[in-house]
Write a protein that binds this DNA or RNA. Structure first.
Lengths: 156, 156
DNA sequence: CGTATTGCTGAACAGATTGCCCAGCCGAAA
DNA sequence: TTTCGGCTGGGCAATCTGTTCAGCAATACG
């Protein structure tokens, strides 16, 4: 799914002002409304744009502490561990990886003390052999996609 | 910033059907439009809802490979390394952490071969002493916030 | 015990947007 | 040359938004 320059501008525009409508978008982009509409539809059905879900800030919800945990799993316990982690609300994402650990997950907690509770809950499961945790202090580059979109749009 | 049950339902609803308007929202929630409007405004100015930016799938853009890199930084080089990493489009996020590594970043690449190029670019900087990379194979739990919102909404 | 304050409801209005349809134009591919 | 896909520009009815208003109930305060 390659995107062209116009697609790139659409995504950029939506990222800056998510609430603008298709009409306003077409005006800014200098194209007909139907074109903007069609491009947007295509981007969504292509899966390039997954959706427009609200971005919720865990910190504002009372979970200001973020950490990454690397887990080592007992052979064959993968599926069980995944199911277990999926039931923990504080586990925001989970990946299986190559390398020293077998899985890596992102956690949030109400405080450093609360993080202990979360970790206990995460690792308090039979299939998990070992866990090592890194607490996030700063987040110099928050999750972003714009630079990548710009790069992808220019390679057309 | 605590959220109550109604706030929780608003976020849930927006997560399921991001494109609905305030009017439709108020109908689903069984409250007056002004109420829904006010709650939504409050959630946004509180920072609980950061925005509604489009969720772009790197894989659909041609970057199907994700990896996490743990970096060790030479004393005092933190700021320079951050600035360097911020210029690399394939660095989707960057955290400074406690633990063995000093920083942790999420990378994407066009292929495993391309990942080598990305890593070379990331670590090809003076302040970085060592880097270890874990390639993501599966993503059993994609980044999510709903379970946490539900938990936060019930604790009222 | 009165009295602001706050939050919600229900309603109204003009202005803007959406979903949908159509005809014409143009460049690329067959 | 013909066909096809993508873009333009326009029109229409239905809907939504931004905003304002008055009424009402629960709560905090002097």
């Amino acid at each position: 799914m390659a995107i062209d320059h116009l697609d790139g501008r659409i995504i950029l525009l939506l990222a800056r002002e998510p609430r603008i409508g298709v009409l306003e978008m077409s005006r800014r982009l200098g194209v007909a409304r139907g074109t903007a509409q069609a491009r947007l539809d295509r981007l969504q059905s292509n899966g390039v744009i997954r959706g427009f879900g609200p971005e919720v800030d865990p910190a504002a919800l009372g979970y200001p502490v973020t950490a990454f945990a690397t887990l080592q799993i007992r052979q064959g316990q993968g599926p069980d561990v995944r199911a277990h982690l999926a039931t923990v609300p504080e586990v925001l994402e989970l990946h299986t990886t190559t390398g020293t650990g077998d899985m890596m997950c992102r956690l949030v907690a109400r405080s450093n003390a609360d993080l202990q509770r979360v970790i206990d809950r995460v690792v308090g499961f039979d299939g998990i052999v070992r866990a090592s945790t890194a607490i996030v202090m700063e987040n110099p580059v928050p999750l972003r996609i714009i630079p990548l979109v710009e790069q992808a749009a220019e390679e057309t």
